[in-house]
């Protein structure tokens, strides 16, 4: 089966579409679980971000590009990805401005006194959150740009 035949096949049938509709919230929930538990169990921002992005990739494969872009538009995608990178670098810069080293989370103790040990745990969680958002956005837009040839009009 060549590429043209596969793209002419159109929608993927009601069974696949219903399965994707049911599975997508659980995939997203699992991605958020992996991000939230990343700092003391296997997983983390990158893996959770890839899982969150693959939920949107699944939507783009099972339905079409217009449907996926209606749920998660290019604008929202750009904003989320940029804010993810901003959260990551912003946490590091705030740590440096408060008198610690770059990415030294114990300096955040001066904002909210929880103790330096607690802040090291919380700080890595905030950074993982930013990494997860950025990776989700990049994975989704990689697939959309590659699948539509760059113009985001017609998907696979």
């Amino acid at each position: 089966m060549t590429g043209e035949q596969m793209s002419k096949a159109g929608t993927s049938g009601i069974i696949v579409e219903m399965a994707v509709r049911i599975a997508t919230p659980f995939i997203q929930l699992f991605g958020m679980y992996v991000i939230a538990h990343g700092h003391y169990s296997p997983g983390g921002g990158f893996q959770g971000g890839v899982i969150l992005g693959s939920a949107f990739i699944l939507l783009g494969i099972a339905f079409n590009q217009e449907m996926a872009l209606r749920y998660f538009s290019e604008r929202v995608n750009s904003i989320l990805g940029s804010s993810g990178a901003l959260i990551y670098v912003g946490t590091a810069v705030v740590c440096a401005l408060l008198g610690g080293l770059f990415l030294d989370y114990s300096a955040l103790d001066r904002v909210l006194p929880l103790g330096p040990v607690e802040w090291r745990s919380m700080g890595i969680f905030v950074v993982e959150l930013g990494v997860g958002l950025a990776v989700m956005s990049i994975m989704t837009s990689l697939f959309w740009d590659l699948g539509s040839g760059g113009d985001l009009e017609k998907g696979l």
């Binding site: 890839v50 899982i51 992005g53 994975m139 990689l142 697939f143 590659l146």
Partner: peptide, 18 residues
């Protein structure tokens, strides 16, 4: 996640465009 999941999808998307 990356090797078996996303990179396969990206490879297939690239193949369909060639």
């Amino acid at each position: 996640t990356v090797g078996a999941g996303v990179s396969t999808v990206l490879f297939i998307a690239a193949i369909l465009r060639t």
